[in-house]
């Protein structure tokens, strides 16, 4: 693992007209690490994702990616730098086939259509959707669409992938498959931050867990440490 962190977040705050969604958050992510991001509903997890991926301008604080300050960058710039994301509510290109969806991602690094097609097929195979390449995205199941978003993000050759609730609504077998997929992404050297409510999906595979509550970080540690942290237990069960 590289000594210098891949991602370093420092004092990050985001307020929407006075409503503070993220408060003074700081953490680092190293190359190839799997970091779980958990917290009760409304804790600010998706807001944090949106700040990291350039969709929101932070109100205060700094984000550094590979040692470079990227605070307040745009989504397209973040993608080019190597930060890919999926969406909590899936946003597949519904009028396009699965293959075409992933091709759009692959075109970030190489505009050639033939190249994008072969690259997209690789990623569809990787997430287990090789047989669905010609299916219309709008006609896929939600579970398939979530994997399609992962394939699309991977096709951009990211160094960090932000996965927003990719396990929500999946059955137990699917959760296991999704966990394995994240581990296989890690094996490719890609770091991931995973927002997840499905604990059995994230706890076994995460190197570290960050816990947010009311917009602030209340814990940061290994899954074992988090499971025993009194502040975390209080946040989840109520004081």
């Amino acid at each position: 693992m590289n000594a210098a962190p891949l991602l370093a977040v420092d004092g990050l705050s985001k307020a929407f007209q006075g409503l503070v969604a993220n408060r003074d958050i700081g953490f680092t992510v190293h190359h190839g690490e799997i970091v779980g991001l958990i917290g009760p509903n409304g804790a600010g997890k998706t807001t944090l994702f949106n700040c990291l991926a350039g969709f929101h301008q932070p109100t205060a604080g700094h984000i550094a990616f590979e040692g470079r300050d990227i605070t307040g960058t745009t989504p397209e710039r973040a993608a080019a730098l190597g930060i890919a994301r999926t969406f909590q509510i899936v946003r597949v290109f519904h009028s396009m086939t699965a293959l075409e969806n992933v091709m759009v991602g692959a075109m970030l690094r190489n505009k050639g259509v033939a190249h994008a097609r072969s690259r997209a097929l690789e990623e569809l195979e990787f997430v287990g959707l090789g047989h669905r390449a010609e299916a219309l995205a709008s006609e896929m199941t939600v579970s398939e669409q979530k994997r399609l978003e992962v394939a699309r993000a991977l096709a951009t050759d990211p160094k960090l992938i932000l996965l927003d609730e990719v396990m929500a609504g999946l059955n137990q077998t699917e959760v296991r498959e999704a966990s394995q997929l994240v581990v296989r992404i890690q094996e490719r050297g890609i770091a991931s931050i995973i927002v997840e409510h499905v604990m059995e999906g994230i706890m076994p595979i995460a190197d570290r867990i960050l816990v947010l509550d009311y917009g602030a970080k209340i814990a940061d540690g290994t899954p074992e440490q988090i499971a025993e942290d009194p502040a975390v237990i209080a946040a989840y069960l109520g004081e």
């Binding site: 989504p75 993608a79 994301r85 969406f87 946003r91 290109f93 519904h94 396009m96 991602g105």
Partner: peptide
């Protein structure tokens, strides 16, 4: 189809 998703892919 999805402008925000397109941006996330660098468009």
């Amino acid at each position: 189809d999805e402008p925000e998703a397109a941006r996330a892919l660098g468009v």
